[in-house]
C-alpha cells in the first residue's frame, strides 16, 4: 500500500511535482501516465527514497520513506528509468550482489535468484556479462534486480521504453504476471501501454494529477464525445427538447445565451454512444443548425493529444519493425 499526501518537489526553483495526493492499495496495478517531463520519474524517485520531497509525505505499507527509510525500502523493488546495472558484471554476479545488498539470507539466495531468473526468462544468459546483453535483456535484468528480496511493491519507471515490439509484449506479460501477487506502479507516456497492463491510471501533467480512473473510463473521457459544448441556432426551449429526444443523450443544460439567436449547451451522453451523428440529423430535421461542437475537459484532451501522438509514432514504428 502506498499513501502519498501533499507531495511537492522543487529542483532549485523549478517545480517538478506539486501537491500530489493518492493512495494505491495492496495488490493494485496502477499506471502513471503523462508526457515526458510530467514528473513521473520524480514521483517514483521520491517514493523509493532516492530523492526527498520538498514537502509532503510518502508512506509505503504504513512506513514513512523519510522517517523509516530502511524498513520502507525493504518493501519496495525499484526499476529506475535507466536500469542501474553494473555493466562489467555477469548477470549472476549482479543479482548476487543485489541479494547481498538487500540482505537476502545466503541459505536461500541461490534458489531465490534462480526463481527470479525463471520468472523474467533470463536463466540462459545468467553467465553473460551485462554489457553484452541486448536492451531488452538489460531491462529484464533490471526487473530481476527489483524482484530480489521479494518486495510486495514494485515500482517500474518506463519499463518498456526503448524495447522492440516483441520485447514490449513479453515484458508486459511478465509485469502482468508479477502484478498478480504484488502492488505494481509503472509509468509510461504511452496510453495503450497502461491500458494493456493497469487496473487504474493516474494521469500526471506538469507535476499534478489531472485524472485518476480506470483505463476504460479514461478512454471514454478522452474520446471527449460524451460531454460536449455545442452552439446551436434556434429557440432555446425547442432546441433543448430536440436534443433531449436524441437516443443516448443523458443530460442537456443551457450554458450561455449568446443573444444573437444562438445558445451554447452542455450535453452529456452515454459513454458507449457516439452522439454526434444522431444529434446532427435530429437538429437538421428540426431546422436548427449546429454552429460549433467542442468536447469539454480540454486540458485532459490536450494532454492526451500529446500522449496519443507519441503513441501513434511509437506503434507505427513498431509496426514497421514487425513488417521488416
Amino acid at each position: 500500500m502506498i499513501e502519498v499526501s501533499g507531495l511537492t518537489k522543487y529542483y532549485g526553483n523549478k517545480k517538478a511535482v506539486e501537491d500530489l495526493n493518492f493512495t494505491i492499495s495492496s495488490g493494485e496495478v496502477v499506471g502513471f501516465l503523462g508526457p515526458n517531463g510530467a514528473g513521473k520519474s520524480t514521483t517514483m524517485n521520491i517514493l523509493t527514497g532516492y530523492l526527498s520531497a520538498t514537502s509532503g509525505t510518502a508512506k509505503i505499507d504504513g512506513m514513512d520513506i523519510l522517517d523509516d527509510p530502511i524498513e520502507a525500502k525493504r518493501h519496495i523493488g525499484y526499476m529506475p528509468e535507466q536500469p542501474p546495472l553494473y555493466l562489467d558484471m555477469t548477470v549472476e554476479e549482479y543479482l548476487n550482489f543485489a541479494a547481498e545488498l538487500k540482505g537476502v539470507k545466503s541459505s536461500s539466495k541461490r534458489k531465490h535468484i534462480a526463481e527470479i531468473c525463471e520468472n523474467v526468462s533470463i536463466t540462459h544468459v545468467k553467465g553473460r556479462v551485462i554489457k553484452n546483453l541486448s536492451k531488452g535483456y538489460k531491462q529484464r535484468v533490471g526487473l530481476a534486480m527489483a524482484l530480489i528480496g521479494d518486495p510486495d511493491t514494485l515500482i517500474l519507471d518506463e519499463p518498456t521504453v526503448g524495447l522492440d515490439p516483441i520485447q514490449i509484449i513479453e515484458i508486459r506479460n511478465v509485469i502482468k504476471e508479477l502484478g498478480r501477487q504484488r502492488t505494481v506502479v509503472l509509468s509510461s507516456h504511452i496510453l495503450s501501454e497502461v491500458q494493456a497492463i493497469c487496473e487504474r491510471v493516474l494521469v500526471i501533467n506538469n507535476g499534478t494529477i489531472v485524472a485518476n480512473d480506470t483505463p476504460e473510463k479514461l478512454s471514454a473521457n478522452i474520446s471527449g464525445e460524451h460531454k460536449m459544448n455545442v452552439q446551436i441556432a434556434g429557440p432555446q426551449s425547442s432546441v433543448m427538447s430536440v436534443l433531449r429526444s436524441v437516443d443516448g443523450m443523458t443530460s442537456v443544460a443551457l450554458r450561455r445565451d449568446n443573444e444573437d439567436g444562438t445558445a451554447n449547451f452542455v450535453i452529456e451522453s452515454d459513454p458507449n454512444v457516439d452522439i454526434r451523428k444522431p444529434m446532427f440529423f435530429a437538429l437538421a430535421k428540426a431546422g436548427y443548425p449546429i454552429l460549433s461542437l467542442q468536447p469539454l475537459d480540454m486540458s485532459l484532451e490536450d494532454i492526451f493529444l500529446r500522449l496519443t501522438v507519441e503513441e501513434d509514432t511509437a506503434s507505427r514504428g513498431a509496426r514497421k519493425k514487425v513488417a521488416k
Binding site: Y50, P69, K73, Y78, Q82, Y86, M145
Partner: peptide
Amino acid sequence: KQRTDQMLLTAPVR
C-alpha cells in the same frame, strides 16, 4: 555516472 547509485540508495541500507 552509471546511475547505479539509484540501486544503492534505494536499497535497505544506510
